[in-house]
Design a protein around this nucleic acid. Structure first.
Lengths: 228, 228
DNA sequence: ACTACGCTTCGATCATGATCGAAATATTCA
DNA sequence: TGAATATTTCGATCATGATCGAAGCGTAGT
């Protein structure tokens, strides 16, 4: 019986190293990062990181872009991000009984998940939108209502599909720190984009977590009705 | 920065062994199987398989049910199946350039993917339903149209949600052998269930692949318009 | 209670691959 | 062209975990 089990094992082995897992996890913030930065994140020397990055890129998990003397790495495509999403969801569930849930507070509070909001912020915004009837969001399925579409349009959020790749408008993404679904898909990405543009949230120099500005806190509370 | 990278790596390491990958891949057919069967699939001795199974079960990737002197193992929950789906999709894409795509012919022809149809059959049926306007199916998003709902109802397919877990009615699952999406979710599961009940397809004693009966071939062609 | 069978635990062996120092390569800027 | 910096390649070392034989355990049937 020929199956894809060998390929599956090969892929898993690629993620099974703590250093590479850290790199992939870090790249889930969607921003291209240099080999040196990723070496630091992984807690290994640059030459070791280089070896890890080469393996990940050879398997097309990573895309590399040469910018001057440095190389910027990022996840190869949304499929990889979605796969990691799924694995993280199972990972926290599976390792739960043994390990105390030691998650960085800033990370839990607010972060980006590839291209959309996650953490308490992401879940709170999604919950609020659901309560207002803008959204139907489940562990497996998500749908933006007419009212929700109108609401997002009133915020000048562009929900038109990109020409390149067709993407789901609205889909759930299981938040691994909150263990509840939050909004992902084009709508989630557009919302995060808006939040950055209006300076509601700012990327912290270190890590995937984001800082909620005072204006952002007010906006999420009043505009969305988020309890945060 | 505390992340879930360690847990992610731990989970990946669990799948990274060829034997365990074979076991997980095999269990994707949705049927509980004994430790001995799985040992044979993995190509290892029973005591080695036992060790693998214990590790998988400890991480809650597998559920075990004691039936007499033997133990039946199956995937712990649909989340695990969906994660493996995602990994397989990336795995075939990533390892493609190097490896010749040596996939078992029967497997490619028709198989089950956890609870729905896959392979040429699964894709052909999904394509046909799409062409008839029953279905909108994309790499990321799926929707059953009113006509599609009516069609499935006319086949006496029960689309009511199960009380236990809410599940998506209609979602795409990327077929790793065909590299195209096929129908999954409650609708896909119900359709596969119907196909088994009407003896359109039969499980082969060995492996995950299914055999299409003569009646099945006729049914898929005439009822669905599938080119298969 | 005894036997048969499926499965698991223990112990020892062995192979794969992660790591880093040292050195080479590539790119930009002066 | 030469210096500075980022990154990769090479080589040697070392640790983790996969494997199977042997033995132990638990369940079902006689």
């Amino acid at each position: 019986m020929q199956t894809i089990a060998p390929e599956l094992a090969e892929l898993a082995a690629l993620i099974a190293d703590p250093g590479r897992a850290s790199i992939l996890s870090r790249l889930m913030d969607g921003r291209p990062q240099t080999a040196s930065e990723l070496a630091q994140v992984a807690g290994v020397t640059p030459q070791t990181a280089s070896w890890h990055l080469a393996r990940l890129a050879r398997f097309c998990l990573l895309k590399v872009e040469r910018r001057g003397p440095r190389r910027l790495y990022c996840l190869a495509n949304p499929l990889v991000a979605q796969m990691l999403e799924g694995m993280m969801t199972v990972a926290v569930a599976g390792s739960q009984p043994l390990r105390p849930p030691r998650i960085d507070d800033e990370m839990r509070r607010a972060r980006t998940c590839y291209d959309h909001l996650a953490g308490e912020l992401g879940v709170a915004v999604s919950d609020a939108m659901r309560e207002r009837g803008y959204l139907v969001l489940d562990h497996e399925v998500g749908e933006l209502t007419a009212a929700g579409t109108a609401f997002l349009c009133s915020l000048e959020i562009d929900l038109r599909p990109s020409s390149r790749h067709r993407r789901a408008l609205c889909r759930p993404c299981l938040d691994w720190s909150e263990r509840r679904p939050h909004l992902a898909g084009r709508a989630g990405a557009a919302l995060a984009d808006l939040a950055f543009r209006r300076d509601w949230i700012r990327r912290r120099p270190e890590g995937r977590s984001v800082e909620i500005s005072a204006a952002g806190l007010a906006a999420f509370r009043t505009l969305f009705g988020a309890r945060i």
